[in-house]
């Protein structure tokens, strides 16, 4: 008797939770297709009476959304590629190559994980101002070019590479860079994809730092532009929803197509240890 009721109970709760988590995203999409003013009626409509892409056209034609989208793509792509190169090579070296002070430097990095990144922001702003990087794409990208978390993630994975594999290649006379390129990178591929997704989503969604370092509207990334637009267009709910769709859709698609790597990275990184 009790068993019979338990299964519908568990699945019913799951269904309710899924409806709650997905509803705002569904409503965003639905509202973005409404004609201006339609969302500001009572009761709030669930579906547009007549679906239209006018809000999207307006955003791209007059609010410069295309420009912000291009900025976001550029910043997130460059930051992801550069940080992958730096973090993967460093993570591998911390796991498999010997150099003086390796353990001590790694311990220092691990300890610094508790320092929130925002502590650095004020002096970082002054430093970048000094370097002429404030209000440039570089100002957004440069601090994201390496991360302690990324190095840590790669190192944990690289520890499992058998030493014999590397030694054999060394005996064959391969240089360290050749070994890295031809043996290590293919073995590390799953964690590289994981880190790529993490970094891409992180830089795409980042808000506070781009807000601080970018003052010129033409350089805004999507989140900064959206926040500014939403303060200017408090009443234009339909248009703001269209802007939200444009901002969220790319990351959601990346996540859905690569979620296996993302979720495994999250689970693997936490349970080890």
């Amino acid at each position: 008797m009790k068993r019979k009721l338990a299964a519908p109970f568990v699945n019913g709760l799951l269904l309710a939770a899924a409806v709650i988590t997905l509803f705002p995203l569904f409503w965003m999409t639905s509202t973005s297709l409404m004609v201006p003013g339609e969302a500001s009626t009572f009761p709030p409509p669930l579906f547009p009476s007549r679906a239209t892409f006018a809000n999207y056209r307006e955003l791209f034609a007059h609010a410069g959304l295309g420009r912000y989208l291009a900025n976001s793509v550029l910043v997130a792509t460059v930051a992801t590629i550069v940080s992958l190169v730096f973090n993967v090579s460093a993570g591998y070296a911390f796991a498999k190559l010997r150099f003086a002070g390796r353990e001590r430097i790694f311990k220092l990095l691990l300890g610094a994980l508790v320092i929130p990144g925002q502590v650095a922001m004020v002096p970082l702003f002054l430093l970048l101002k000094h370097l002429g990087l404030v209000n440039t794409y570089g100002g957004v990208i440069v601090p994201a070019m390496a991360s302690i978390f990324g190095i840590f993630l790669v190192r944990q994975y690289a520890l499992s590479i058998p030493n014999e594999l590397l030694e054999a290649a060394r005996i064959d006379g391969a240089s360290e860079f050749r070994i890295f390129r031809l043996i290590v990178v293919p073995v590390l591929k799953p964690i590289i994809v994981t880190l790529a997704v993490f970094t891409l989503l992180g830089t795409w969604n980042d808000f506070m730092w781009p807000l601080i370092v970018l003052t010129d509207k033409d350089l805004y990334t999507l989140p900064v532009a959206l926040a500014t637009l939403s303060r200017e267009h408090v009443q234009d709910d339909e248009m703001m929803m269209a802007g939200s769709v444009v901002t969220i859709l790319p990351v959601l698609l990346v996540f859905l197509s690569l979620q296996r790597y993302y979720i495994q990275g999250l689970m693997g990184g936490s349970v080890k240890g």
Partner: peptide, 16 residues
């Protein structure tokens, strides 16, 4: 489904 909000852009979902 339950994880999806985590990857969304904070500013965009705050607007919603």
């Amino acid at each position: 489904a339950l994880f999806a909000p985590v990857v969304t852009t904070l500013v965009a979902v705050a607007v919603i």
